[in-house]
Simulated assay, not measured.
Amino acid sequence: MDVPFDLNSYVRVLKLASTPSWEEFSRVALIAGAGVALVGLLGFVIFLLMSFVPGAGL
């Protein structure tokens, strides 16, 4: 494990990285939020099914 080589490669990646524009950030945040909402909705639907179907839950 060559530590100076590893540090140089990390610095090179950080130099290539840039902050996203507001449009790109908002689009990624919107897609991530939609994914979280979809997973939450799916969990809620499963909860409702487990609550109303006899013998499906504990």
Rank of each mutant, 00 (worst) to 15 (best):
M1I: 02
D2I: 05
V3G: 04
V3Y: 08
P4H: 02
F5G: 05
F5H: 06
D6W: 02
D6M: 15
D6T: 07
D6C: 06
S9A: 12
S9I: 11
Y10L: 15
V11D: 10
R12E: 08
V13I: 14
L14G: 03
K15N: 10
K15R: 12
A17D: 03
T19Q: 13
W22Q: 08
E23H: 09
E24N: 12
E24K: 09
F25S: 15
S26D: 07
S26L: 06
R27V: 03
V28K: 11
L30I: 02
L30Y: 09
A32T: 05
A32K: 12
G33E: 07
A34L: 15
G35A: 09
V36Q: 12
A37L: 15
L38W: 06
L38C: 06
L38Q: 00
L38A: 10
G40C: 10
G40M: 05
G40Q: 04
L41E: 02
L42T: 10
V45A: 14
V45M: 12
L48E: 03
L48T: 03
L49Q: 02
L49E: 00
L49G: 03
M50W: 01
M50C: 11
M50P: 00
V53R: 07
V53M: 04
P54R: 09
G55K: 08
A56V: 05
A56N: 01
G57A: 09
G57L: 05
L58W: 04
L58Q: 06
L58P: 10
L58F: 06
L58K: 12
